[in-house]
Design a protein around this nucleic acid. Structure first.
Length: 551
RNA sequence: GCCCCCGUAGCUCAGCUGGAUAGAGCAAGUCACUUCUAAUGAUUAGGUCGCAGGUUCGAAUCCUGCCGGGGGCGCCA
């Protein structure tokens, strides 16, 4: 008896009441109802507030409606008891046997347990990281590397077809500054006023000179071109390697430069002009974004004839839509939230629906703390906090988990000392330890030749019930994480599950002791443990974090 | 000045898209190790959910205004 099945049972009860003429629902019977897990012991295993929500529409009072539903629901298969409480809540206790069947179902489903078809048939494009190839990956981009990739895994689990893309800004002024900085460094000159001064600049400049010894014999313009070409390539290789090591695999690396060279920008601008959403002013071409909700209109073709940055975004968006993506996500740092208005307006200017065809997610800032002090970043001094500062300090698992564990709307401070610890106040450790503890038990079972078997009716211990209901939550958690674009829900769920498992383990002996005979209860509990392992592993996989067999 | 995000236990944060007496971990007190990983569990204590109004059967959650913190407001990319 899972929450989904219970929801169906309640819906059936409502439908049956309507059929009998005992209930009138002008808007029809809902397709699903809210099933909650009450915090309070004594409020049953599950609760629903349907009576409170439908009473007004049905022209009756909540308690009377609750009585009607309760009567039907009590007779439903798998329901042990239904109580009416408070203003009209239905507190439902499920039949232990019906609930215990879940253990076998989870183990049978294996790595697909938690999957659903909530996003079946959707072609989803996720664009994230997209850091300029002018330096190593900074920490803000890494947040989305972890969260965006997890979101991709979650969407896949809910049936969507997901493509991960990295938009490579290899066009325009930032790149010029980058190449100028390399050139200056190679010539032993200080970094330009508006350039990059990090140590990596010197390293790359030296590497380029080593590769092309004659480069400094060329004129500045030609030399700068060499530095640009090779420097961007080197930087990009390094970023790709960092991401690969971070277990993020992009399907598409999209080059901004190509959009300008291929005529895609011109085509997008033409389309918008046809739609009557552009105009000329001050020798520049403007996109009328204000009428679509932006603060003001935006230049797309500058008065010097070059495309403004936004022009690449227009073309890129159009390209994604033409490649068949119904939903395009762009994940940005809070320092780019100012683009949300113009991007949504741009989407609307194409005749699309912002929030649906284009969804922009904003992630707040990330600080790394060591000894309680933030690692300060300063672009001027070239001391940007990078992926290596994070991964080097706490490893990939802890990094991904730490970044994915919080709501994207919250700024986060990652205490490097904490996340490196092998104790329970380190959340990733808590979850991984639970998995290792389960794995250990399964190994012991194999040594003892105890074979898991399904005996649902034997799993009647309170802690077994709590564990089963917790396992039953997982598909809902994954679905909610996808619908709300909130991968942190998976992490929080896993932490809770780890605690639930420890409490079960503490009160329910799984394996026979000494020369004790193996009973069906041992086998049934072992199956429950195996189911727990499955869910812990599946959840960690959604976050891209390893599930260790031993610790 | 305008825009976005945040404000919940001493600390770090959840809060199931409006539900019942607001939760977890850590830190503090007490207790349980002939333990299947004690890297654990049990238990106690800890709160005017930033403040003030409003919406309704019901608000930490939605609306408005303040206060405090973070970020952003280029024909840069």
């Amino acid at each position: 008896m899972t929450p989904e099945q219970l929801s169906t049972a309640v819906v059936d009860a409502l439908a049956s009441l309507v059929d009998q003429g005992a209930l009138a629902l002008p808007d029809g019977v809902p397709s699903e109802v809210t099933i909650e897990r009450p915090r309070q012991k004594g409020h049953g295993d599950y609760a629903t507030n349907v009576a409170l929500q439908l009473a007004k529409k049905a022209g009756t009072n909540p308690r009377a409606l609750a009585e009607l539903v309760a009567e039907k629901l009590t007779a439903a298969d798998g329901v042990a008891e239904v109580e009416i409480a408070g203003p009209g809540f239905l507190n439902i206790t499920v039949d232990a046997g019906a609930q215990g069947r879940l253990a076998a179902e989870v183990v049978a489903a294996g790595s697909s347990y938690g999957a659903s078809d909530a996003f079946a048939g959707e072609k989803i494009n996720l664009e994230f990281v997209s850091a300029n190839p002018t330096g190593p990956l900074h920490i803000g981009a890494v947040r989305w590397a972890a969260v965006g990739d997890a979101l991709g895994r979650i969407f896949t689990m809910t049936g969507a077809e997901v493509t991960r893309e990295y938009y490579f800004n290899d066009h325009g002024g930032q790149i010029d500054r980058f190449s100028n900085s390399l050139l200056a460094s190679a010539k032993g000159e200080p970094a330009p006023e508006d350039g990059y001064g990090g140590e990596y600049i010197q390293d790359i400049a030296a590497a380029i000179v080593a590769q092309e010894p004659d480069v400094l014999e060329l004129g500045d313009d030609e030399a700068r071109e060499v530095f640009r070409r090779i420097g961007v390539e080197m930087m990009f290789d390094e970023i790709k390697k960092s991401l690969r090591d971070f277990r993020v695999d992009f399907d598409v690396y999209f080059h901004e430069d190509n959009l300008h060279k291929s005529g895609a920008v011109a085509k997008a601008v033409e389309r918008l002009t046809e739609l009557g959403n552009t105009y000329e002013k001050d020798n520049a071409l403007w996109l009328a974004t204000e009428k679509f909700g932006d603060d003001k209109d935006r230049v797309i073709i500058k008065s010097d004839g070059n495309g403004a940055y936004l022009s690449g975004d227009l073309a890129y968006y159009l390209d994604k839509r033409e490649r068949g993506f119904d939903r395009c996500f762009i994940m940005l740092g809070a320092d780019h939230h100012g683009y949300v208005g113009r991007m949504n307006a741009m989407c609307a200017a194409f005749g699309d629906e912002p929030g649906k065809n284009l969804e922009i997610l904003i992630g707040q800032m990330v600080n790394l703390l060591r000894d309680g002090q933030p690692l300060r970043m300063s672009k001027r001094a070239g001391t940007v906090v990078t992926i290596d500062d994070l991964v080097g300090a706490i490893g990939v698992d802890a990094s991904r988990y730490a970044l994915a564990r919080y709501h994207s709307d919250s700024p986060i401070d990652i205490d490097l000392d904490l996340w490196a610890k092998a104790t329970n106040d380190n959340p990733v450790f808590t979850v991984q330890y639970a998995h290792a503890r389960v794995a250990s038990l399964l190994r012991n079972a194999a040594d003892l030749d105890v074979v898991a078997a399904s005996h649902p009716e034997l799993l009647v211990h309170e802690k077994e019930g709590v564990l089963l209901r917790s396992l039953a939550e997982f598909p809902r958690v994954v679905k909610a994480a996808a619908e709300l674009r909130e991968p942190h829900r998976v992490a929080r769920y896993l932490e809770d599950l780890a605690g639930v498992y420890h409490r079960f383990y503490d009160s329910c002996r799984v394996l026979p002791r000494g020369d004790e005979e193996t009973t069906d209860l041992h086998r049934a509990r072992l199956l429950l443990v195996d189911a727990t392992r499955t869910v812990l592993a599946n959840g960690l996989a959604l976050l891209g974090v390893s599930a260790p067999e031993r610790m």
